[in-house]
Design a protein around this nucleic acid. Structure first.
Lengths: 219, 219
DNA sequence: ATTTGTGAAGTGTTTCACAGCA
DNA sequence: TGCTGTGAAACACTTCACAAAT
């Protein structure tokens, strides 16, 4: 039924920007859900996210037909569909490498748990911190990484170490068998094709903001 | 001279993705500079950033003609040009609102200072932390925001408060007169057109990574 | 009347391919 | 030869606009 080319989900290659917006739709939908809203139109969703209504319909259309003409989208149904698509309806185990300032903040970040990520272990090279429990998570020596990843079925690794150490930590996570890496070190990392990576450079974010301001004022 | 359409910089509207890559070019170039490299080709730069050589040349071409045929780009010259373009050759003052886990990490983040950002003040609603000095930065009550922004010529505000408080903090920063806002709260913020904004949702980053992994494994 | 879902059109970005220079 | 700078072509993404559904 319908003109889906295959039984399983997203064969017709979906624009990457659309994929990235999916999380933002879910974030907005969950807020509507908390506020007791039952339906929402593409126009309203678009306004909340600074997108056009057509964009919202196209994006959601890549993943299924969730709306009702004349009515809009059911908030509850859309929340469920997006959670299923994004996998946040099931818990994934995550480990952290680097228990410095950023690492510590991430260990206590409520948003991770809310989205189905469970931080099951932290790692650091500093002997003075190994063995401690930070925000309820035990800090292991780096040598334990393979064992913990195996025993706890860790799917994702978060890198929060200084730039010079980042690539070797990345390699260690890949060898240990994680499927994805979230990198906060200010360094481009090389990973094999079967591992996905997402990098966030905090200072670059500020720099890009400053440049946007400059363009807005001069340009 | 040359075919620049005007005396001042970037009139011919530059693709936003190109603008965002500029910081990444600078990060890479600075590493080459540290390693003593004197020249680099578009191909080499591209490989380091997972871009094509043509992309690198196009991007840099939007801002000037920095290369030499047959040779490549002078690392030192390109570093200087990029720093000038991005404004990291001059210091900008920044303030932080929200001294929780993430806020604390940002106050001690070396990357900001290195890129010419100077954190001159922090703000929080919690009376127990106001008046303290965290990583060398004084924590003020929210009421002092307008005065500090004015007296210290603060250009950028960083938001690291819980989502429900984010919009009102954002409004306060705009009223105080900042030009740009970097938002870490998991919430879409509305700003007037003369203010630029850049948002980073840490949990969304992990969620997007998880989705990429899923697409790579199924799709 | 309102709103979805979606081909077609329009816009934006990347890649190609090559002239020109070192 | 090796490499840049850049129009032209290719590709990707967004917006338009309207038939179909309620």
């Amino acid at each position: 039924m319908s003109r889906n080319p295959a039984a399983r989900e997203p064969l017709p290659s979906i624009p990457l920007p659309a994929v990235k917006r999916l999380s933002l739709y879910l974030r907005e939908i969950e807020e509507l859900l908390d506020h007791g809203r039952t339906t929402v139109s593409s126009k309203q969703l678009g306004q909340a996210l600074s997108l056009t209504d057509a964009q919202v319909r196209k994006d959601l259309g890549y993943f299924g037909q969730f709306g009702q003409p004349g009515i809009g989208y059911s908030v509850a149904q859309l929340a469920a569909e997006l959670r299923r698509l994004l996998g946040s309806d099931q818990v994934s185990n995550v480990c952290l490498v680097g228990v410095g300032n950023i690492g510590r903040a991430l260990l206590d970040h409520a948003g991770f748990r809310r989205k189905g990520f469970h931080l099951v272990g932290a790692f650091d090279v500093s002997e003075s911190i190994v063995g401690q429990s930070v925000h309820g998570v035990t800090v292991h020596p780096m040598a334990d990484l393979p064992r913990v990843v195996r025993e706890q079925a860790v799917r994702f690794g978060v890198i929060a170490v200084p730039a010079p150490a980042a690539q070797s930590v990345c390699d260690a996570l890949v060898r240990a068998g994680v499927s994805g890496i979230l990198n906060f070190a200010p360094k481009r990392l090389q990973v094999p094709p079967h591992v996905s990576i997402n990098s966030v450079d905090l200072a670059v974010q500020l720099e890009q903001l400053a440049f946007q301001v400059m363009l807005a004022q001069r340009g």
